[in-house]
């Protein structure tokens, strides 16, 4: 028996909207730790890791570990039927091939339930080692989204270079080149606008712009994004959800052939 109650359906809606275009089908794993997902995109270039911690839920009952295969597009369709301030309850019986999403309006005068078919998904779990990254940048999530979108219109790849002064995003395309430098800056009005650099060594890596743009669909989840880079490692683009957990995107770099 699984029963998870979350007061803000809006959060789950944002989570689904941020990954449904990158990953078609995925297993949601439910354990005492929380409600989590790990999945790669179809080309195995990017990996999504989501954790919604059990203590972030209003009610969390998961009798034993369970893995539920869902089509994320279909799950997003069902969640779109909830209002952001509805309470959502995710329910599944042991051995059932369906999951139920129940939405309750804040005044309790509208209660809806949507039953979705589960699917068998063969997916391998990858071991992601805890790593010390050579460079970590924390910056405004909306600024990062703007940069990825802007550079994506000029070129297919983005070079991200971190020095102790700041982070540089560069691209090159048929029509020309573009460079954006964000200097470290903590003297800001709103703390989410700060750009913080923690760097052991300068790092410069190249990535496909379309994946970075896809990751920024998670922008509504957090004010700041954390970008972690090391040579010969995938970049990690992380959106932390206050009290609930995180959405992490890993992207393999491009290298000179």
């Amino acid at each position: 028996m699984l029963e998870l109650r979350l007061t803000q359906a809006g959060l789950l809606k944002k989570v689904l909207e941020s990954i449904k275009d990158l990953v078609t089908d995925a297993n949601f794993d439910c354990s005492a730790t929380g409600f989590s997902l790990q999945a790669m995109d179809s080309s195995h270039v990017a990996l999504v890791a989501l954790l919604l911690r059990s203590d972030g839920f209003e009610h969390y009952r998961c009798d034993h570990n369970i893995s539920m295969g869902m089509n994320l597009g279909n799950m997003a369709k069902m969640l779109r039927c909830a209002s952001d301030d509805d309470t959502v309850t995710i329910k599944a019986d042991d051995g059932s091939d369906t999951v139920t999403f129940m939405f309750e309006s804040p005044s309790q005068d509208k209660i809806s339930d949507y039953e979705m078919k589960l699917m068998d998904i063969d997916s391998e779990h990858l071991g992601i080692p805890e790593a010390e990254y050579q460079a970590i940048v924390r910056m405004s999530a909306s600024e990062f989204a703007r940069i990825c979108k802007d550079l994506g219109t000029i070129g297919d790849t983005v070079i991200i270079s971190v020095t102790k002064e700041g982070v540089q995003f560069s691209t090159k395309g048929d029509i020309g080149t573009a460079n954006i430098i964000c200097r470290k800056n903590t003297a800001v009005d709103k703390k989410e606008e700060a750009t913080v650099i923690e760097m052991a060594e300068p790092v410069s890596l190249t990535f496909a712009s379309r994946y970075l743009i896809a990751f920024t669909k998670a922008t509504p989840l957090a004010g700041q994004v954390t970008i972690s880079m090391s040579y010969d490692m995938p970049i990690v683009v992380e959106y932390k959800m206050e009290t609930m957990g995180y959405m992490r995107f890993y992207l393999a770099p491009k290298i000179e052939e």
């Binding site: 080309s43 195995h44 990017a46 990858l126 992601i128 995938p234 393999a252 052939e257």
Partner: peptide, 14 residues
């Protein structure tokens, strides 16, 4: 020329 790497190059199956 740039070559796109894949995730399995970095992370092994559990």
């Amino acid at each position: 020329k740039l070559k796109q790497q894949v995730i399995s190059r970095f992370f092994a199956p559990k």
